[in-house]
Each structure stands twice: as structure tokens, then as C-alpha cells.
């Protein structure tokens, strides 16, 4: 350790000669009390600031943030559940609407079919009626035509007989013609 006299120099300690350190300044025990004193002061001040103010505050902030994050996550979970619910409701509504539409379609189809059947039946009936009427008319016409043919045949036969020189009475000619007509 430095033991030189410091006479003549404006030195603060025996460890410093001419502004330069003698030996290791770390081992100059003249300075230790000063350093230790100020170190203790510093540590106490830092400890006070940290333990009274800074650390509880940061702990509170971190806890608050954790709380906020948890809340936000819970809210997000809620919203997600709601979204899922809404989707389900939407799907259900869609399915309902589809089923209803199917119902309406079926009903309408059935109605239309019934109407169609009705109309067909009516038309069939009308057609049948008309056909019957037509047949009746045809029969009438045929009967008339038969009558006319009979008359014409009677007249023709009478004329023929008279032309041949025979004299035929009306009764026998009619009988003959009726017999022929039936045959």
C-alpha cells in the first residue's frame, strides 16, 4: 500500500500522488468508509422507491392488465358463443323456410292436380255427353234415311211393277220391302 508522504502535492489522500493513483485505488482503505456510507444511502433510497412506489404499482398494472385480458377473453368467448347461436338460428330459419317452401309447393301441386283432375273429369263428361248426343243424332239421321230408303224403295218398286205391267197393291209391296230391309 502507498505509504509515501504527500507533502507538496494537493492530494486528497495518501493513495494519490501528483493526481495519479498509487497502487490500486480499490485497495485504498481511506476511501472505504465514504463509499460504504454512500452505498448504504443509495441502497436504502432505491429500496424505498422500489418497495413503496414502483413495485406495487407495476404489480397492480400487471394484475389489472391480466384482469383486462381475462375479461376480454371472456367477452370474446361470449361473443363467439353468440355468433355460434346466431348461426344455428340462421340455419334453423333456413331449414324452416325450406320446409315451408316445400310444403307450399306440395300443396300447390296437389291443388293444381285436383283442379286438373276436376277439369279433366268435366271435360270427359262433356265429351261423353256430346258423343251420346251425336250418336243419337246419327241414329235419328239413319232412321230417317231408312224411312226415306223405304219410301224410295216402295215408290221404285211400285213404279217397276207398274212398268212391268203388273199391278201391285201397296200392301204386298210394303211387306216385301220390309222383308228385304230386314234381311
Amino acid at each position: 500500500m502507498a505509504t509515501e508522504t504527500t507533502a507538496g502535492t494537493a492530494s486528497t489522500s495518501t493513495c494519490v500522488v501528483d493526481g495519479s493513483a498509487v497502487g490500486m485505488p480499490q485497495l485504498c482503505f481511506d476511501w472505504w468508509p465514504n463509499q460504504i456510507f454512500w452505498l448504504i444511502v443509495t441502497l436504502v433510497v432505491i429500496f424505498f422507491f422500489l418497495s413503496r412506489i414502483a413495485l406495487p404499482r407495476i404489480a397492480a398494472v400487471l394484475a389489472e392488465r391480466q384482469g383486462t385480458i381475462t375479461n376480454d377473453l371472456a367477452a370474446a368467448e361470449d361473443l363467439k358463443a353468440k355468433a355460434v347461436e346466431a348461426e344455428e338460428a340462421y340455419n334453423k330459419a333456413l331449414a324452416d323456410a325450406r320446409a315451408q317452401a316445400q310444403d307450399i309447393i306440395n300443396q300447390t301441386k296437389a291443388e293444381i292436380k285436383a283442379e286438373l283432375d276436376d277439369a279433366t273429369a268435366k271435360a270427359d263428361a262433356e265429351i261423353a255427353a256430346k258423343a251420346a248426343e251425336g250418336e243419337k243424332k246419327i241414329a235419328e239421321i239413319r232412321a230417317n234415311a231408312m224411312e226415306s230408303v223405304k219410301d224410295v224403295a216402295k215408290d221404285t218398286a211400285k213404279e217397276l211393277v207398274s212398268v212391268m205391267g203388273g199391278k201391285a197393291d201397296a200392301k204386298s209391296i210394303t211387306a216385301a220391302i220390309n222383308a228385304r230391309m230386314k234381311g
Binding site: 494537493a10 492530494s11 486528497t12 489522500s13 493513495c15 494519490v16 493526481g19 495519479s20 493513483a21 497502487g23 490500486m24 485505488p25 480499490q26 485504498c28 481511506d30 476511501w31 468508509p33 465514504n34 463509499q35 456510507f37 454512500w38 452505498l39
Partner: peptide, 23 residues
């Protein structure tokens, strides 16, 4: 090693217990 010298901030007195130094 000169950078490690402890000096009083004010004046040139000896470094006592309560001296205000560069420490």
C-alpha cells in the same frame, strides 16, 4: 487505474465519511 480514484466534488479536502465525492 486513475479512473477509479475517489475525489471530493468540492474542494480538495480529505475524503471523510460524509464528504460529497464522485461516488
Amino acid at each position: 487505474m486513475d479512473q477509479f480514484i475517489v475525489k471530493p466534488l468540492f474542494g480538495d479536502g480529505p475524503v471523510g465519511l460524509f464528504t460529497i465525492t464522485n461516488v
